[in-house]
Design a binder for these strands. Structure first.
Length: 923
RNA sequence: GCCCGGAUGGCGGAAUCGGUAGACGCGCCGGUCUCAAACACCGGUGGGGCAACCCAUCCCGGUUCGAUCCCGGGUCCGGGUACCA
């Protein structure tokens, strides 16, 4: 019998399906293990060979854990809302639901061919009403909560209302958009609208006027992580800043906990670092500067309180509310003109164009420590959204302030001894202070670190300022002016936003005639007929962003069919959180922040038992494409082989990698590929056309897309799985190169040949030999350790070595081979299932038990020692394993090779170092 | 600019604790089988040298009996982030 992957794979895939082999239930008698993949957005292009990389890795680990006796939860689903389906709908009029369903079916059939052990009964789709009911539910909970900064937890909003009724805003410690002050009487005197507006300042899900990233081309608002370098990540369209009234989530309230939680999780340092930078904690001080001849006080944030003696001007962000307050009548026209000019620029233009610009407001601030009058300017290098939107400028010790001062000819006062500020600023946070003596505070001679502390202490005591921690992390803007997303369970009663009752959920997405904004510029939901509550109140027209549905999906897998709760207490307390999460690093500052936030919020509510959702996280690398090129001689239809191209004037042309093998072009297939190449001529080398190659992104336009279906058809799923893992370390990005896949396919055939020669079954019973035991136990040890380290490429090498050894030994021993099959089953489940069956058991290999190695079989008869003499020479001697160090030394000295280095004079000393290596050092 | 990560044969990559650098696979070369080719199998394969040996893990230096690995400095490549005060 020959190895026939097609029969074997379809047979066992059907068997697993028919017998619900991978169905998972709560089982208190076994320890749980939760392995999760980041669920995919089902795009129209289908899967290419890069997509399953992480899925294969998680599948191997799941199967491994299962064989070790764990009850493994390993689900899959679809992140089904998204822009491409909506844009396709706009172009074609086809409902995104249909497109999405078609794409999901395609994904599913591709995934099924690879032989994953998902429990598909637990599938979730973010666009299903049964699912998004709980996304809407979570939003309502956030609306009905505020964040207590003292208790560091979310609390019900009614507690805050009770407080307002008794004490007003006095003594509250609540995360808010801005500090408000009112008495209990003032609160009670407010009308419903004012009360609603006031509470918005504190709710975790709130409506707020915020600066948003507005993308005119997409017609929607985008979150910070959806924008990079001033353009939208999806589509690459310019993004501008705009003040809009939008739903937001108060993620910033959780900044410190999101930071602290990183200590507890097993993620890579680089990913944690990316999140730390994104959260951007900075300790500093807020300080007040009075404006001369005015009641206005400017509040600024600085991390360099020590440099307050070097402040030579103040700068306001153009959008700052202070601008109107401090601009003098004489300067108003000039300031207005500047601000208008800034508003015209998109974020991208502001970033590319780093010219120093600014305008004087006409006002002067008073330095609270020196009493000096300093001018107040407006400039776009100060951001409205960070700190207070106003800064004290210390040109000597901040490069941006320095550039500004030089451009507008403002004074520069150096404050640190030895700092040369004639050419550039001195930004380092070290050195001794000078020029820093005022009437009440003297920092001269102090180290910067101590000067910061001294200044903080002084300003706190004097009431000039206070110590303050700032975070870069902003609240998440939660409204999208789009159709294909979760509708908000919100209606407006006399202009006041109200939450729907939970019994009314899910609020289903309405039908619309077109997926475009309305003529009056309202979002697509504005086209829906009767988009009103039964009482006739209008319903919110925006939908939720992409990250809404992906923020808690891992919880829903635990209890996907529960109609009463997001997840039952029972299911949650058994499955707890994700033990292993595998996905791309591109979600570092988006999904992985939002879902941690979302989970922490649910934790505060007591709905989930773990405050971190993903215990261990692995980022699989990207699989890049490996493009092939042919070289057309200019103005001809003749193509020259890569090695000869330097003699001609050529244009490289991408050629479909599927008609190239080992960089050799199939010239006939090339002629048939495109009509214009019908009569192509070739200049060959050694009778072959050799293509050039380059590593590029895998994409249709580069003709380097390799489809997993084609590989499965030709070599089988087991070969694909092994080859993807064999390509290199999981975390590393690497190009896909189908050359080399024969190697792992050959390995599987060699494995098969241990069982069969022709149609003869070779399996023997009886005791394995010493060599056979050694080979298999070496493998058990290696593979067990490698899987735990996600070092799948080296375990496959180990399998190859073992199978070669067993072939050499002519080993067909049942005991040895059954161990081998169990070890390989996570990697190549189909062939192992078949061979397991051939070995004559009535269970599936999925129910086998992972073997444990025995050190006894691994003992070496001989040990190699490294011997060195005064570092001048080293050689290796092989001696029996049980030989003592003294004897080794003796042999070393007697050794001929050693003798010529010792000169017969000196005596060697033996040092035993780890790994049974002996060094002989001459005294 | 700042923060991470990386650099090893013709190629992908091993060396998991500082101990024979190049495992395993691809490719290539030679052989067996075949009328021939493909498949399969066997052998060889970092460079130099007839050889003993010598030189090789991006470059320069250090620690060590011994460095791909640890330390200092530099070059190049990849990723993240960016007026964050």
């Amino acid at each position: 019998m020959e190895y026939n992957h097609k029969n074997i794979e379809s047979k066992w895939q059907q068997y697993w399906k028919d017998n619900a082999t991978y169905k998972t239930e709560i089982d208190e008698s076994r320890p749980k293990f939760y392995v999760l993949d980041m669920f995919p957005y089902p795009s129209g292009a289908g899967l290419h060979v890069g997509h399953p990389l992480g899925y294969i890795a998680s599948d191997i680990y799941s199967r491994f854990k299962r064989l070790q006796g764990f009850n493994v939860l390993h689900p899959m689903g679809y992140d089904a809302y998204g822009l491409p389906a909506e844009q396709y709908a706009i172009q074609t009029g086809q409902h995104p639901e249909i497109t999405t369903k078609v794409n999901i079916d395609r994904y599913r059939s591709q995934l099924d061919k690879i032989g994953f052990c998902y429990d598909w009964d637990r599938e979730v789709r973010t666009c299903n009403p049964d699912y998004y009911k709980w996304t809407q539910w979570a939003f309502i909970q956030m609306f009905n909560s505020y964040y207590d900064t003292k208790l560091q937890t979310a609390r019900p909003i009614y507690e805050l209302i009770e407080h307002f009724e008794k004490y007003g805003s006095k003594d509250i410690h609540v995360a808010c958009s801005k500090d408000l002050e009112f008495t209990a009487d003032e609160w009670k005197a407010m009308d419903d609208k004012s009360k609603s507006d006031t509470l918005m300042n504190y709710r975790i899900a709130y409506l707020g006027n915020t600066m948003v990233n507005w993308c005119p081309k997409l017609g929607t608002v985008l979150a910070n992580d959806e924008v990079s370098e001033g353009v939208s990540i999806r589509g690459g369209y310019p993004v501008e800043q705009k003040l809009m009234y939008q739903w937001c989530l108060r993620v910033s309230a959780y900044a410190q906990r999101l930071l602290d939680g990183l200590e507890k999780v097993d993620w890579t340092d680089s990913l944690k670092e990316t999140q730390r930078n994104w959260i951007g904690r900075s300790e500093g001080a807020e300080m007040k500067f009075k404006i001369a001849d005015s009641d206005v006080e400017l509040e600024i944030f600085t991390t360099r309180a020590d440099t307050v003696f070097g402040v030579t001007f103040m700068v306001l962000a153009p959008e700052s509310a202070y601008v109107d307050l401090v601009t003098t009548p004489e300067h108003k026209a000039e300031v207005d003109e500047y601000i208008a000019a800034i508003k015209h620029k998109t974020e991208r233009e502001r970033m590319i164009d780093k010219k120093v610009t600014g305008v004087f407001t006409g006002s002067y601030a008073i330095n609270p420590l020196t009493g000096d009058k300093i001018p107040v300017w407006v400039s776009d290098y100060v951001l409205a959204g960070y700190g207070t939107g106003a800064i004290m400028a210390v040109p000597a010790h901040d490069s941006r302030d320095y550039a500004f001062a030089r451009h507008f000819n403002l004074p520069v006062i150096p404050l640190i001894e030895g700092a040369d500020v004639s050419e550039e600023s001195f930004d380092a946070k070290s050195g001794k202070m000078m020029n820093s003596k005022g009437p009440e505070l003297n920092l001269n001679g102090l180290e910067v670190k101590d000067a910061i502390a001294a200044t903080k202490k002084f300003i706190s005591e004097k009431g000039i300022g206070k110590v303050k921690v700032n975070y870069r992390l902003r609240d998440a803007i939660f409204s999208r002016q789009r159709y294909w997303g979760e509708p908000f369970p919100v209606y407006y009663k006399d202009g006041i936003p109200m939450m729907m009752d939970e019994s009314q959920l899910p609020l289903q997405l309405p039908e619309v005639d077109k997926f475009l904004p309305t003529e009056t510029g309202e979002p697509p939901l504005g086209r829906a007929k009767n988009w009103k509550t039964p009482e006739g109140y209008p319903i919110e027209l925006c939908t939720m962003p992409g990250f809404a549905g992906s923020s808690a999906y891992y919880l829903r897998y635990m209890d996907p069919k529960n109609g009463k709760e997001l997840v039952s207490k029972k299911a949650n307390s058994y499955w707890k959180n994700v033990d292993l999460y595998i996905g791309g690093t591109e979600h570092a500052t988006g999904h992985l922040i939002y879902s941690r936030f979302w989970n922490k919020f649910l934790y505060d509510l007591g709905k989930v038992c773990e405050d971190e959702p993903f215990r261990k996280l692995i980022n699989q690398g990207m699989i890049q494409g490996r493009s092939n090129f042919v070289y057309r001689i200019k103005d001809t239809n003749t193509f020259v082989s890569s090695g000869l191209k330097k003699d001609y004037d050529v244009t490289p042309i991408h050629v479909d990698v599927n008609i190239v093998s080992n960089d050799i072009l199939d010239t006939e297939a090339f002629r048939a590929w495109r009509p214009e190449f019908n009569n192509a001529e070739f200049i060959l080398e050694d009778g072959k056309y050799v293509c050039g190659w380059a590593v590029e992104k895998m994409s249709k336009s580069m003709f380097n897309v390799v489809n997993p279906d084609d590989i499965v058809e030709r070599y089988g799923a087991d070969t694909l799985r092994l080859y993807e893992m064999f390509l290199g370390p999981l975390e590393q990005s690497k190009p896909w190169d189908t050359n080399g896949i024969d190697g792992v396919n050959r390995f599987l055939r060699k494995l098969w040949n241990l069982f069969y020669k022709g149609d003869t079954l070779l399996i023997t019973d009886g005791e394995p030999t010493k060599e056979e035991l050694k080979s298999i136990h070496k493998l058990i040890k290696k593979v067990t350790a490698d899987i735990e380290n996600f070092s799948f490429n080296t375990s496959i090498s180990a399998f190859m070595i073992c199978v070669n050894e067993l072939t050499q030994l002519k080993c067909h021993n049942r005991e040895v081979l059954s161990k081998l099959i169990v070890l390989l089953a996570p990697f190549a489940p189909h062939i192992c299932e078949e061979l397991w069956h051939i070995l004559g058991t009535d269970t599936t290999v999925c129910d086998a038990v992972w073997p444990v190695h025995n050190e006894e079989y691994l003992k070496e008869d001989n040990v190699t020692y490294a011997v060195s003499f005064n570092g001048k020479a080293r050689y290796n001697i092989e001696v029996p394993a049980d030989m003592s160090a003294d004897e080794v030394q003796k042999i070393a000295l007697e050794n001929e090779a050693a003798a010529k280095w010792i000169d017969g004079k000196t005596i060697a000393k033996v040092i035993v170092v780890p790994r049974k290596i002996v060094n002989v050092v001459v005294k």
